[in-house]
Design a protein around this nucleic acid. Structure first.
Lengths: 195, 195
DNA sequence: CAATTTTTTGAACATATATTCAAAAATAAA
DNA sequence: TTTATTTTTGAATATATGTTCAAAAAATTG
C-alpha cells in the first residue's frame, strides 16, 4: 500500500471512529455529518470524498464494531481454559470493549430500524455469530457438567442484556475502574450457570 | 368531568399510546407526527390541538410509562411476601409490562439525549425512584439474611439490564408466552442474589 | 333549526441537515 | 518551478418533517 493509500485508509478509519464515538453518545439521528467531521477538524463535505453517504459511513462503523467483537470472542474461545473461566473472560472482554468504545448502538437496538437489504443481512449475521458463540459456550459447559442445566438461549440473552446495559449506567468517575467493574459483573452473572 | 372533557382526555391518551407504540418500534427521531396521527385516522395538524409540540407529546408519553412502572412496583412492594418471592414478582411484573407496551425507550437509552431542563429532571427522578426501589429491596433481603451479600447497585443494574433487554429479542411468535418467559428470566436472575 | 363552540383539516411555512459540486487549496510528480 | 493529481472547502440544493393557521367540518347549545 502506497503512502497515499495509507493516508486515505487512515482518514477513513478516523471518520469511522469519530462516527462510532458520536453515535454512541447521541444515537444515529442526532449525530450530524458536521459533528463527525468537525471532530477531525474537517467540514462535512469532505466526508463524501471517503464515503458514499451517511448510511454507508454508519453501516461501516457498526460493522467494524461487530467484527471486532467477534474477533475478541474468537480469541478468548480459542484459549485453553475451563468453561467457567472461559465464560467469565468472554464477559470481561465484552464489557471492557463496550466501555472503551462507548458503543451501545447496534448492540443496543434493533438494527431493522437503521439498516435494510444486504446491510441488514450482514449486521444480523455478525450479531448472530456473536450470540451463537455464547450460546455454544454455555451449552458445552452444561454438557461437560461444569454448568447447571439452563435454557441456553434465555440465559445467553440475560447475559447479553446485563452486559450491554452497562453503557447506560457506567461512569468513568465511579468508584471502580472498568476492569474491576467488568470482573464484578461477570462474577454475578456466572452464578446463573454455576451449579 | 364533563362528557366533552372526557372525550378530550381520551383523545390525548390515545395519542400518547400511539406515540408510545411507534416510538417503541422506531425510536424517537424516526417516529413522525404523521405516523402517530394516522394510527388514529387523524392528520398531524390535529395533534397540535392536544399537545404543544412533539417534544411535549413524547415527554408526556414517556412520563406515563415511568409513572405506571412505579405504580406497578409500589403495588408489589406493598404486598406481604418473602423477599425472594417479592423480588421475583417485581421482575415478572416489570418484564410483562415492558413486553405489553413494547416500551424499550426511555428505559433503554440515556434520556439526556432527548430531554433537558425540567423535563429531564422529572424523567430522571422517576427512573431513580424505580431503581431505588429495587436497590432497597435487594438491600433488605440481604439484611434479613434471605439474600447473599452483594453490591446492590451493580446487581440492581444487572437485573434492570437483563430485563430491559428483553424488548430487543422477545418475539410473540416464540415458544413461550410472555408470562412463562418472564418467570423463567426472573428465576435465573434470582440466582444471583440467593444464597 | 340557527347560532355558537369545538375539533379537524390540509396547505403553507420554517428549519434542520444530508448531499452535490464547481472552485480553491494542498500535495505530488516531472 | 511548473504541471498534474488529490483533497478540501463552502455555498447551493434537495428533502424531510415539525409547526402554524385560516377555513371547513362536526358537535353542542338554545
Amino acid at each position: 500500500m502506497s503512502l497515499r493509500e495509507k493516508k486515505v485508509a487512515k482518514r477513513k478509519k478516523d471518520l469511522l471512529m469519530s462516527a462510532i464515538a458520536i453515535i454512541g453518545e447521541k444515537g444515529y439521528h442526532s449525530t450530524t455529518m458536521e459533528e463527525i467531521a468537525s471532530k477531525l477538524l474537517m467540514t462535512k463535505g469532505s466526508i463524501y470524498y471517503y464515503f458514499k453517504d451517511k448510511q454507508d459511513l454508519v453501516y461501516q462503523s457498526q460493522k467494524i464494531l461487530l467484527e471486532q467483537s467477534n474477533e475478541n470472542i474468537e480469541e478468548v474461545l480459542s484459549e485453553d481454559l475451563p468453561y467457567d473461566e472461559k465464560l467469565k473472560k468472554v464477559m470481561v472482554v465484552h464489557i471492557e470493549y463496550l466501555i472503551t468504545e462507548q458503543s451501545g448502538f447496534v448492540m443496543g437496538t434493533n438494527p431493522e430500524q437503521f439498516f435494510s437489504g444486504k446491510q441488514l443481512e450482514t449486521i444480523l449475521m455478525l450479531r448472530d455469530r456473536y450470540g451463537n458463540y455464547i450460546k455454544q459456550l454455555i451449552a458445552e459447559g452444561v454438557k461437560e457438567g461444569v454448568f447447571t442445566e439452563v435454557d441456553e438461549k434465555i440465559v445467553r440473552n440475560i447475559i447479553l442484556g446485563a452486559m450491554n446495559w452497562v453503557v447506560t449506567w457506567y461512569s468513568p468517575n465511579g468508584p471502580m475502574d472498568k476492569t474491576t467493574l467488568a470482573k464484578s459483573i461477570s462474577n454475578y452473572l456466572l452464578k446463573i450457570v454455576l451449579k
